[in-house]
């Protein structure tokens, strides 16, 4: 295997962290433009696409939906019935604007990973996963304090009613760390890790296909190259699924965190 890989001096290199190193988009450009890297561009595009899509869909709503309004309404009903209502119940409509735009924004950021030319899911940089998670975290705290009062909220979270008295000493630290430290952490990392791993996976198979079929076409490596090419196609489909799933999960978790701060647990 490795003598195929090391054919003729130049070796096959699996893609690594350099996949995520993006310098400024215009390397020779002016100083004030250095912040514009590819991930930033993708996030800006995702914002633009979300805004344009929603304006197109709901600018002039008609009783019999046509075109973009059809898609928009289907998406809205999906988000409301599958994500908002199971968690929030009758409060779902109040938070639908936030949940719906969050869902579409994350979805478009993720889909950038399989769209040709872009081909980089923005949340594969952890910063772009942390910011939405941090927004949700702050929202969770503010809503909790607003709806249940400062003492009531923290008491409800740290000392859930219905447990034996002595247990609190042991379990409250776990509860504290779990809710206020690990919850936003896992919320962000779940999205980030899936996008990161998916991007590396796709890049690996694509590199294998390119290397063995175009760069170093040998009879021994041909089969490997074809396998890499086919796996690239299969994995692109799989990534499409994972990207939708992660956007879904992110929104479901958002809804469930908000629901947790609106009402004390019983």
């Amino acid at each position: 295997m490795s003598d195929i890989l090391a054919a003729e001096g130049k070796e096959f290199h699996a893609p690594g962290m350099e996949l995520f190193d993006w310098g400024p988009l215009f390397p020779g450009g002016p100083e004030w433009l250095t912040w514009l890297t590819k991930p930033v561009l993708i996030v800006a595009l995702a914002v633009a696409v979300t805004a344009v899509f929603l304006v197109m869909a709901f600018r002039r709503p008609q009783l019999v939906p046509r075109g973009a309004q059809n898609v928009g309404e289907a998406a809205y009903v999906f988000v409301r019935d599958q994500m908002a209502r199971p968690a929030l119940g009758k409060d779902a409509e109040r938070f639908m604007p936030f949940l719906f735009t969050t869902f579409l924004f994350i979805l478009f950021m993720n889909y950038a990973g399989v769209i040709p030319v872009l081909q980089l899911p923005a949340p594969s940089h952890i910063a772009f996963a942390i910011v939405p998670a941090a927004v949700v975290y702050v929202m969770m705290l503010v809503l909790g304090i607003k709806h249940q009062g400062l003492g009531g909220y923290f008491k409800g979270v740290l000392f859930p009613p219905g447990l034996p008295k002595g247990i609190y000493v042991i379990l409250t630290p776990i509860e504290l760390i779990s809710t206020f430290v690990l919850r936003p952490f896992t919320h962000a990392v779940r999205l980030f890790a899936n996008m990161f791993a998916g991007h590396i996976l796709l890049a690996f198979f694509a590199t294998v296909g390119y290397w063995f079929l175009i760069e170093k076409l040998t009879p021994a490596g041909f089969g490997v190259g074809v396998l890499g090419f086919l796996m690239t196609i299969v994995m692109t489909g799989f990534e499409l699924f994972i990207q939708s799933l992660q956007a879904f999960i992110f929104t479901v978790l958002t809804a469930s965190y908000i629901a947790g701060s609106l009402h004390a647990e019983h």
Binding site: M1, S2, D3, L5, A6
Partner: peptide, 10 residues
């Protein structure tokens, strides 16, 4: 040499 090459690669 197979093993040695693998050792270099991984």
């Amino acid at each position: 040499s197979f093993i040695l090459a693998a050792e270099n690669a991984v």
